[in-house]
Simulated assay, not measured.
Amino acid sequence: MSNSELMSIGAFAQRSGLTPSALRFYADSGLLAPAETDSVSGYRYYSGDQVVRASVLRRLREIGMPLAAVAAVFEAGAGEAARLVDEHVAKVVGDAALAQRQAAGIKCVLGGDLPAVPVAVLKGPVLADAVEQVLTASVDEPGLPVLAGLRIETSPEAVTLTATDRYRLSTRTLVPAGPPGQTWAGTVSGDELRVAVAGIRRSALVRVEATPQGIRLRVADGADRYCRLLAEEFPDHRLMLASLGEVTTRVTVAKEVLLRALEEHPGERIALHVADAAVDVVSAGDEAPGDEAPGDEAPGDEKPGEEGTRIRLPAAVSGRALQVWFALTTLYPAVSTAIGPDLMLDLRGGDQPVTIRSADRGDFTTLAMPIKPDHSV
């Protein structure tokens, strides 16, 4: 059908994704008038030229934009229209965040009579930082809501936070700042914890209490935060940690140097080639160092291969030479969230998880899953 041909309201509804009743409503609202209306029968006809406008109208309404704002978008130029859409989305996001904060407060009040068990006392700024660090390994995945959660495990001696997106697993252990708590474990909503972070950070001490439905975070300003428990079972991360193979290669490298190499490297899939006293960040076409011995190039020098790039970094290396491939989206956040100026990487082979942690602190650890040399997961 050419754009100049007319179609019935039913046919146009099928092409545009709008129902006939919605088309009548938008016609009466002045947002999408028919191309022609039969003066005798009153039948409405639309042209192919109107499909794009109808589709945009439908999508604007799907994101909750009011009719007056939709009209303003259609009347504006491209740049102004984009600004109006951004302005609407920002308002929706802000309203949702406000609703989330208010809902947490309401649940706290409603749950005031629920039995609460004190499980830990932690320093607020330390807990806030730990939550943000560990939650970088979470993900919103349809059908697996538990991957967006944070696993909390407490004992009288420590509180451990864990998150995983199946390609990374991050865990941090905190030392309680108050009297010994109780042994408890649960997976709580990561989104609700993110909302609570600002209040947690401003409180010198945070008292964590467990209820049958979630955790209550008692903070200094008296506006307690509440985060619900997720019903789904968290992945058996302890089994994965316990089943890790023997470390065959250990690397100590400056965090900022490695991070800068990952930022500057053009590849989306890269490999770490470890040998002697250097780590080469390489890509396809340059999968192994050239004939030069490590040290012949200045640290951080970039060397293009026939189809790839190699960036050499100084490092302390023990164990056998090894090359491991990663997706940048897995390796970069694992490096960027690590604690301290120097990182220790424990490698177990090209197809085994790599442990990334501070060279002098062991309370925050990330496991990063490699990809196969052919770039498949």
Rank of each mutant, 00 (worst) to 15 (best):
R151N: 11
A148L: 06
E87Q: 15
A81Q: 09
D86N: 08
A99S: 04
T187R: 00
L127Q: 14
L144G: 02
G186A: 12
T187L: 01
K91S: 10
V188K: 02
A116G: 07
T171W: 01
A71E: 13
W184Y: 00
G186N: 01
Q100K: 07
V109P: 00
D191A: 13
P118L: 02
K91T: 12
V85T: 11
L122A: 08
A128I: 13
V121S: 14
C108K: 01
A82L: 14
G112T: 04
V89M: 09
L169R: 08
T160P: 01
P145V: 02
A69W: 06
A90T: 11
V139M: 15
V89S: 06
T173F: 05
A69L: 12
E80R: 15
L127D: 15
A71V: 03
P118W: 02
L169K: 02
G112Y: 04
I152R: 00
V134G: 13
A177G: 10
P179K: 10
E132N: 15
P125N: 14
T183E: 12
L135S: 11
D129G: 14
T164L: 10
T171K: 10
D165H: 10
R83G: 03
V175W: 05
G149C: 06
A163M: 06
R172K: 15
S138H: 13
L84N: 11
A148R: 09
L147Y: 11
P176Y: 07
A148W: 04
D191G: 09
D95I: 01
L147D: 10
E153L: 07
G94T: 05
D165L: 09
V134A: 12
V134C: 13
H88T: 08
V139E: 15
D129F: 09
